[in-house]
Design a protein around this nucleic acid. Sequence first.
DNA 1: GGACGACACTTAGCTTAGCTAACTAATTAC
DNA 2: GTAATTAGTTAGCTAAGCTAAGTGTCGTCC
Lengths: 151, 151
Amino acid sequence: MPRRDRQDPLPPGPELATRLHSAAIHLLRRLRVEDSASGLSAPRLSALSVIVFAGPVTLGDLARAEQVRAPTMSRLVSGLVKAGLVIAERDPADRRIQRIRATTKGRALLEAGRLRRVRRLARDLDRLSAAEFRVLREAVAMIERVARAER
Amino acid sequence: MPRRDRQDPLPPGPELATRLHSAAIHLLRRLRVEDSASGLSAPRLSALSVIVFAGPVTLGDLARAEQVRAPTMSRLVSGLVKAGLVIAERDPADRRIQRIRATTKGRALLEAGRLRRVRRLARDLDRLSAAEFRVLREAVAMIERVARAER
DNA sequence: GGACGACACTTAGCTTAGCTAACTAATTAC
DNA sequence: GTAATTAGTTAGCTAAGCTAAGTGTCGTCC
């Protein structure tokens, strides 16, 4: 019975996927260091990010986006509300629903943090040549397409 | 006083960094869905991953890698030990230090989870043409280099 | 070679983040 | 107009984060 050893080379598709997966993890782990300056916990920062970029969202939307249950998101949001970073209003048309959106303060806080991360990444990318830059630009467009695809 | 508007185009370096950052986040958020099948919490899964790939590590190494404090990692590791996924042994040369390594079971569990993520990503990457594949391969090598760089 | 500081981790005790189960209120379906 | 469904919340638990303080081990230095 043929057994697949750990050292066996993987087929080309999975091998690239493996490397992309690993590279993405290491990239973001590196940038995460900058987040402590925001003063927010990782779950709150992540939820705030979705609220800022996805515009007014419902609590259910948020819970799905963050892959947590509704009660968890309910408490995260009330923490963000108390901190003055977001506002939650009942939808007048369907009063079960909340419309959650960022305040100016929330948007500013998130944007400052995102800038720290991006600046750090931009500094790291300075190691690349102009030609490599062009290749990376193409690749990023592909990753965006793949990562946002329907299913 | 010239004010930078939100709609202003960013300079080329930061703009690529911004897009790469966002693409990496969306890529991993998408793959994270697969992790529930492992039965482990995200922090434990992440710690196990470092243990499996970085070989025997100390608790301090792990805490630094995961960007948490020692007491947090201490409890994560004892959870993994109780679950039979890792083994922690005192270093005979310096008995303050632990050498933490994965068991066969731990390695198998992590590998199964990683495979689910990678297979999902590989399936997503099938949308790309052969030419795009080659570009992506080049870009991944660059990202690996950048993400592992010293500082 | 004994005292002392530093180091690696653990314990205690707190807050936040995750969950399920059960509840409330609003809407939709019949 | 009653029943079922949907959106969130509350209660109550475990896990994960922190700081402060404790334990044992090592290195140093006189």
